[in-house]
Design a protein around this nucleic acid. Structure first.
Lengths: 231, 231
DNA sequence: GCTACTTTTTATACATGTACAAAAATCAAG
DNA sequence: CTTGATTTTTGTACATGTATAAAAAGTAGC
């Protein structure tokens, strides 16, 4: 962490690359070649240095990707105008996070690690929590509710991203297909009857339906005195 | 896939190791040394063979882990006696899956890939779907509801497992801590006011609360004619 | 110039999953 | 016994993140 408080030249070997340079080069590689082509060696070549030199400017590859994600969020996430009930505000904010992540599939596994998002995305978290509080939850309940929404959202992103990956990279029949064709109707009647429709149903994008159900459940389960006016 | 339909000896070089041997050795390594010590090279040494020989018996490491997970589920998951409303049945089945995965942290990232669980666990899926249908949902709605529950459950497991990993391996302060101490109360009033309680609240295990909310929301959102009798 | 100290860069090394190709070990046919 | 076909095993190689230690390049004090 170079402290430029004093403009005096700092001791030590002068850096040939900067943190900003590294991040910028990473952004370029991801944009031009895709996130899976971003390796520390390629990145080093891009900035004209060696792999290990990068580690003096970013802690590890994960931190670099989180920084890229911050930039991405700041560039693309737009705040919706405030309108609708608190419930709708919560749903809109969660959906905005979901949409941003859906278009950025390499981000999913990152966010399982650090549980919060970029500074930019915190505004959306605020909207979710605020909507829940104005729906009648206590602040503590609202935070727990936000966590539930976050679990649901990240789970959906992770699973559908992985499924898409699987389809493009490996056309072999999935285990699900094999198992579902051989279900015992006596043991598992519901699943057996649904077997042929299962693939189609699970291929739908039902994020919003589940999100609405979850938010409704959170509001009615834990907040009796909901403020349903527009505030 | 050796087809033992005809007991006649098959041509080709006779195998020195079997699929079952590989799986058993894998189980042993995971039990004695932990899942992160299970590498293809160690496994090969354990069965007295070479790494690449394993690939004639399992497709890749992921398939091996899925097989181990099947075994684990079969060994540990116990069916609860059928009691309670359909709603409670759904919740109990989901909670059973959750508990099994919580005690098996290496499984989480696996299941983001293949969207279904072991044959043993399918019984619990049946219970979830059945409970939703008996609560008034159509079969299609019930499958979508199950998916929502699955997203929520896997998201919760993944995130809390990753957080635990982080804490044990890297005591550096998380980004969340740094960001939350410097929140602007004018921009993000709710979060600023909650900042000091945030860590404690998000450390709680609130899986069941969220699950109940989600199931309630699924039932009341989409099924008006719920069967609330015991059936 | 020389020494101590600090910061950045470089070189080397390891563990990992697994692609690829060659080799080995069996059976059936001639 | 030889030849081919088939299956399993083995050996080699690569790409990856990153640990570790050494080297390089500067400043400050002498």
């Amino acid at each position: 962490m170079p402290t430029p408080s004093t403009p005096r030249k700092s001791p030590g070997r002068p850096p040939r690359i900067s943190r900003e340079e590294v991040i910028e080069a990473g952004r370029r590689i991801v944009a031009e070649q895709g996130a899976d082509r971003l390796t520390m060696r390629r990145l080093a070549a891009e900035v004209g240095s060696t792999p290990m030199a990068l580690y003096h400017h970013v802690r590890d590859k994960e931190e670099l990707l989180l920084l890229l994600l911050d930039e991405y969020a700041e560039r693309t996430m737009r705040r919706p105008e405030p309108s609708g009930t608190p419930r709708e505000q919560t749903i809109a904010a969660a959906a905005a996070i979901h949409d941003a992540l859906r278009d950025c599939p390499w981000a999913a596994e990152l966010l399982t690690a650090d549980d919060l998002m970029s500074p930019t995305a915190l505004w959306f978290v605020e909207q979710i929590v605020d909507g829940l509080i104005r729906s009648g939850l206590t602040p503590e309940q609202a935070v727990r509710g936000y966590r539930a929404i976050w679990y649901y959202t990240l789970g959906q992103i992770t699973i559908t991203a992985a499924a898409a990956n699987r389809r493009t990279r490996d056309p072999r029949p999935t285990r699900r297909a094999q198992i579902f064709t051989a279900l015992d109707p006596a043991e598992l009647p519901r699943l057996a009857r649904l077997a042929d429709r299962w693939a189609a149903i699970t291929a739908e994008d039902t994020y919003l339906d589940g999100l609405r159900a979850l938010v409704d459940g959170l509001i009615t389960d834990q907040g009796g005195n909901a403020d349903r006016s527009l505030g």
